[in-house]
Design a binder for these strands. Structure first.
Lengths: 261, 261
DNA sequence: AAGTGGTCTAGACCACTAT
DNA sequence: TAGTGGTCTAGACCACTTT
């Protein structure tokens, strides 16, 4: 009997989360193996005394975590963990900027620079038009960690405020609080090797692998506003993730709609 | 007036998707700028003649795409695009395995190998116990693309079937259709440099940067089943993603519950 | 006190799949 | 035809924020 566990209406967790956990635990214990069918939604309604909408919400959670897969007219099936739909996020990268205690930002250089062919092409300018080049170094525990180089379109109406160049600016780039006129961004991550200049900045002669995180932002007129790169030696960071039933039930809480805590 | 556009109940797209698109377009056109408040849910109900649950569903979509942010008791606010919550997925990697026309798998070696200290530690074996080592090379358009090296725990009950070593096996790893006894997996991605042996495999003398995608899978007894790495030179792949309002409205369709197409 | 988002109900209709 | 998932309604109560 797996009817034992029921939903506690007085509990802190709302019913749909409880149902997610019940189903997830049953799958984790092997009661429903990958490939097998879960009880139908109407069956779950009866078993746990909740309404169809509540069951659907729970199922949708499992769907989004790729723990199950639904086939209309057929049923809901347990999904084996797979690399295919795996996602990596920039949380770990983001954390760097969060605790301002340990992380210092050193501004290496700020200058007005005329766009060369490449930069002009990217920022949709004519070659020779001015851009602002900012070069920053993020230092953690006294050691250089990330090198950031960014070209901004030069806007005389918006003078360079020194404060903007501090952590806050990078913080805003990650949090999204700073600039209020950005519509969208695109980014790419590459594996590369530090150039000589970059190696100098990191105080090393070694040949070091590095992540290169490229980003470009557009305003509401679809015009490029900035283009830049974060460069981080490969021995300083790795991105991790997991698939299937993890012990950490709370991924994305607050975004998937479970914002009750 | 932005009341013009209404929901078409005869349209192919369900009302909640239409509402998502309406709101998203309004944000994209700058009618609601980052930081500003969207109409309240009850207001949207009145304006578009839909029920509260439908409005909530639409809002939840925008939430998940991090286009808006909700504050209980206060409202729903447009969010500026930010690097912080960005996710990269393995789609592009995955596509390699999909079209079996262009992609060939060459099995370099399959052998029983006694676990050394490292592998024993990872797979929770005693040093000296046997493992199966599989080394494969993925070739695309005649050129080596990805090198895969995987250690499996040796299970006499499950002999090595040659077919399993072909694309299907890797395909299963990505699709999740093959193995039916896996509970969860963990993976990490690193920037590294090809070792000499790896460089040999890729027929090069150059010092090449490479992505190293490490993966480990566990069975329902929480015991490790396999550990391996995909190694892909950095000039052969890059991972891309976007934030904010993109023209591609259909990310994650079918998983977020919009499985109507 | 009024407004807002978060959750839930008890039904309903539809498109699809299996038998 | 019966069962399944996908969507929708028209309310309701709650916790929270703003006024």
């Amino acid at each position: 009997m797996d009817n034992e566990r029921q939903i506690d209406r007085k509990a802190f967790e709302p019913p749909y989360i409880q149902l997610v956990n019940i189903l997830q635990d049953q799958i984790a214990r092997g009661i429903y193996l990958p490939g097998s069918r879960l009880p139908s939604e109407s069956e779950l309604c009866r078993r746990y005394h909740v309404s169809p909408m509540t069951v659907r919400r729970s199922i949708k959670h499992l769907l989004r975590r790729r723990i199950v897969r639904t086939i209309r007219g057929s049923g809901t099936f347990v999904q084996a963990p797979a690399l295919g739909g795996v996602t990596f996020n920039l949380e770990e990268f983001h954390r760097l900027f969060k605790d301002k205690e340990k992380t210092k930002v050193r501004i290496l250089d700020v200058s007005i620079k005329k766009a060369d062919e490449t930069i002009a092409g990217i920022l949709n300018l004519n070659p020779g038009e001015p851009t602002i080049l900012i070069m920053r170094l993020l230092i953690r525990d006294g050691k250089p960690f990330v090198y950031h180089r960014e070209y901004l379109i030069y806007d005389p109406a918006r003078p360079i405020v020194e404060a903007e160049l501090e952590v806050t600016s990078l913080h805003g780039l990650f949090i999204g609080g700073g600039e209020t006129n950005l519509k969208r961004g695109e980014m790419a991550i590459e594996a590369s090797i530090l150039t000589k200049e970059e190696a100098d900045i990191f105080n090393t002669d070694e040949i070091l692998p590095a992540f290169r995180l490229e980003h470009i932002f557009f305003d509401f007129n679809e015009r490029p506003v900035s283009w830049g790169q974060f460069i981080c030696p490969g021995d300083r960071i790795r991105f991790t993730t997991s698939v299937g039933i993890t012990n950490n039930h709370n991924d994305e809480a607050g975004i998937d709609g479970s914002g009750h805590e």
